[in-house]
Amino acid sequence: MKHKLLIGVIFLALASPAQAGPRETIMELLAAEAQVANSSYSGFSAAAGEALFLATFTTGKPETTSCTTCHTNSPSNVGETRAGKPIDPMATSVTPDRYTDQAKVDKWFRRNCNSVLGRECTAQEKGDFLTFMINQ
């Protein structure tokens, strides 16, 4: 399993030598992970990401039933934490430095998927989500 992932990463790294930015690396890792998890993986979908972003869940914490609870229903809007602090818009077109730090991406998917969905997000979901945010 692990070496499969590694091969996937190497393959992707070789396939796209011109794109070496941190965000691209994050996306490539997610793609590789998604591939490993699902052999019929056929790329990420911004539409699926949007659906995930707007969906309402009953499996997470009652205070946060949707991404939109804090992030508003548009990725270009400034969001607000439940404690009242502003959150930079999710779309990279408005906040260009988003999704460039692997640790941050991991931290927030871990926390927020657990808060909203009540479970970890799959690589497919994460990839769809980020694709939606990057293609705004």
């Binding site: 914490k61 205070e63 871990r110 927020n112």
Partner: peptide, 11 residues
């Protein structure tokens, strides 16, 4: 922290 005022704020 995983249930921090109704949110997962784990570190």
């Amino acid at each position: 922290l995983s249930d921090h005022f109704g949110e997962d704020a784990s570190l």
